[in-house]
Design a protein around this nucleic acid. Structure first.
Lengths: 317, 317
DNA sequence: CCAACAGGCGAGTAATTGCCCACGAGCAAG
DNA sequence: CTTGCTCGTGGGCAATTACTCGCCTGTTGG
C-alpha cells in the first residue's frame, strides 16, 4: 500500500509538472523551482506525464485535405463515419494517428449516458487504440470481444484488448474464451454452446458499434505471426483469392466472405448487422490496402478510420 | 476569397505541422523535411498552431490534492459542481488554468444533443474562458448574456463575451443591450420592457446553466476600471459592507444581496434559480477571496471552478 | 546480514527549439 | 517607376530540453 501511495504521489507530481509545463507554459527550470526539485527531476516528471498519457494532445482543426478525402470516401463506399488523419510519410508505424482518432471515436460512444454495447476486435491496431483511451467510469456500458484470444497451442497470449479496455474504462466486459479458428465446423458448434461463449455471441448481435482492425493475408499476416493459422494454410487461402480478414472472417477481393470451409471454422462473434450498428474499421498502411479496399467494396464495414495516404489509395483505385 | 483560401491553407499547414509535432512526435527538422520547408518555417507553423489553439492540451489525471479540495468544497458549500486546478504560484495571471477548466465544463454542456440554454456573464475571466472553447456546431442550443455590455457613456466596449462565444460555437445568441447599472429603478423598469431585453430576461429565467465571473469590490474593482461605476459610489458601497458582485448584483460578506438602492439599478438578467439550474462561478486569486467566499456562503452560486490556492483559502476560513 | 537488483538522482553533453535580425518578394500609394 | 510597408524566409545564436552515465538508496530474497 505504501508503494501504491508513493506511485500515486509520483503520478500526481508528474501530472502537476505536466500541467505547469503544458498548460501554464512554464519552463522546466521554473517547474523545478516551484516544486523544489532539480531541473532533471522536473524533466523526468514532464516526460513521465507524457509517457503515462496524463497529458492528452488533440488537434482541433479540420485539415481541408483530410476532410475532403473523408467526405469522398463516405460517398464512394456509403459509409456512416469516416475519419482521415494526416499522414506521417517517414514513419513506419501502422498505428500512429489512427489510434488516437479511434480512441476519440470510442470515447464519443462511451460518453453516452444511455447504455451502449460496444464490440471490439483485436490486433495491434486495436491494442494501440484502446491504449489511447482515457480513464473513464462507464458502468452503464458493456463491451464484448468479437474474437478469441487463445492460440492454437492453447496459450492465452495475444493482444489483450478487451481486458485492457475494461480496465481503463471500468465497464462490464465479455471476453471470448476461444481461438480465432477451430478445427472444424462441428467443433465450433460445440464450443459456441458454452455459456460464456453464448453470452458473448448474444451481446455481439445487439452491439451498437463495433471497432475492428483489418488483417491482411499473406506469409507475414498477423494471423500467422501470432500463431492462429499455419503458413501453408495461408498460402492455400491467398491462392484461392482471399484478400483480407476481419476478426478472422476471410473475404475475397470483392469483399465477399469466402465460401470454403475456412469461415465455418472461424469461432469469432459474427459482426453486428451493418444496417443497425456502426462497424468501424481502423487501419492504414500499404500492407492493408488490398484488404481494406475489399472490406469496403463488400460493405463489411460501414465506418473507417485511416490516414491520408491510405485514403488517397482507396479513392484512386 | 483568395486571401481567405490562403489563410486557410496556412492554418492547414499549421495544423499539419502541429499534428506531426505533437501527435506523431517528430522534431521540427523532420517536419521541415516532410513538408519541404525550412526548419524555421516549421517552427513558426508549430507555434502558430499553438497560438491559434489548433492544438488542445488537457491534463487527464486527477491530482489527488485537487480532487480532495474539490470534494471538501462541494460538501462545505453544498455545491453541485467543483473543479479545482493546480496552482501556478509564480504566475500573476488570474485566468490561467481556470479558463481551460471552465471551457471544458462549458463544452460538456454544449455536447448535449438535447437543446440547452446557457447563460453567460462577462468579465476578464469569462472572456479568457470562452477563448478556450473549440469551434463547434451547436444550432440546437441558445446562449444568453446575463449582463449588458454598454458603458455609462454609451460606448459598447467591454469584454465581448457573448458574441465571441456565439462566433465560436455557432449557436443562437441573445445579447443584453443595456449597461450593467442604470440610473434608477424606474429607468430599469422601462428598459426591461424593450423586446430585445425581454427576450434575454425570459431566456435567462429558463437557463439550464450559467457561467459567471466573480467581481471584487474596492477602488480597483473591474466595475470601476471598466467605467460602469464611479469610484465614489464604490467607496460608499464598500463602506456599507459590500463584499463582491456577480453580474452586477452586489452582496455583503454573508452573501446576502444588498438591500439599498444599488441592486434596484442593476439591469442584468437575474441569475437562474439555483434549485433548478447550475450557476457556476469561475474565479481565482487573492483579490477575489472575499467576494468568492461571500458568494459561496450566500449560495449565490452552486458551482465553482477555481485553483488550489484559492480552494485552500475557502476551506480554511 | 549480505548480495543482487530496481529505480530515482545529479552531472554532463548532445539535440532541439525559440528568438532576433537582415533580406527579399509582393503590393499599394504616390 | 519608385517608395514604403508588410510579411514570410533563412541564418545564427542562446535558451531549453532530452539523453546517457555512474552513483546512491531502498527492497527482496537467500
Amino acid at each position: 500500500m505504501a508503494r501504491r501511495a508513493e506511485s500515486n504521489n509520483r503520478l500526481d507530481d508528474a501530472a502537476r509538472a505536466g500541467w505547469l509545463y503544458y498548460v501554464a507554459g512554464r519552463t522546466q527550470d521554473e517547474i523545478a523551482a516551484i516544486m523544489g526539485i532539480s531541473r532533471q527531476s522536473a524533466q523526468r516528471l514532464v516526460s513521465l506525464a507524457m509517457a503515462e498519457r496524463l497529458i492528452k494532445v488533440r488537434l482541433d482543426h479540420p485539415i481541408a485535405a483530410c476532410l475532403q478525402a473523408a467526405a469522398r470516401l463516405k460517398e464512394k463506399y456509403e459509409l456512416r463515419h469516416v475519419d482521415v488523419v494526416p499522414s506521417d510519410p517517414g514513419s513506419s508505424s501502422t498505428t500512429v494517428g489512427i489510434a488516437e482518432a479511434g480512441a476519440a471515436e470510442i470515447e464519443r460512444w462511451l460518453k453516452s449516458t444511455d447504455p451502449v454495447v460496444l464490440a471490439i476486435g483485436t490486433g495491434r491496431t486495436l491494442k494501440a487504440t484502446i491504449d489511447q483511451l482515457p480513464s473513464m467510469e462507464c458502468p452503464q456500458h458493456r463491451i464484448v470481444s468479437l474474437t478469441g484470444n487463445i492460440r492454437l497451442d492453447g496459450s492465452a497470449a495475444y493482444y489483450n484488448v478487451i481486458f485492457s479496455m475494461a480496465d481503463t474504462i471500468n465497464a462490464r466486459h465479455f471476453p471470448m474464451p476461444l481461438p480465432v479458428l477451430v478445427s472444424s465446423a462441428e467443433e465450433r458448434e460445440v464450443l459456441h454452446k458454452q455459456s460464456l461463449v453464448r453470452m458473448a455471441l448474444e451481446l455481439g448481435a445487439e452491439a451498437d458499434a463495433a471497432f475492428v482492425g483489418v488483417g491482411e493475408l499473406g506469409p507475414n499476416a498477423p494471423l500467422c505471426e501470432d500463431g492462429f493459422l499455419a503458413r501453408d494454410e495461408m498460402e492455400r487461402l491467398t491462392a484461392a483469392g482471399a484478400a483480407g480478414e476481419i476478426c478472422g472472417w476471410m473475404f475475397d477481393h470483392d469483399g465477399a466472405l469466402l465460401t470454403g470451409s475456412i469461415n465455418e471454422r472461424v469461432a469469432s462473434v459474427p459482426l453486428p448487422p451493418r444496417e443497425r450498428a456502426a462497424v468501424i474499421g481502423i487501419a492504414k498502411g500499404k500492407r492493408k490496402y488490398a484488404a481494406l479496399k475489399a472490406a469496403l467494396k463488400g460493405r463489411i464495414i460501414n465506418g473507417l478510420i485511416t490516414d491520408e495516404t491510405t485514403a488517397e489509395y482507396l479513392l484512386g483505385a
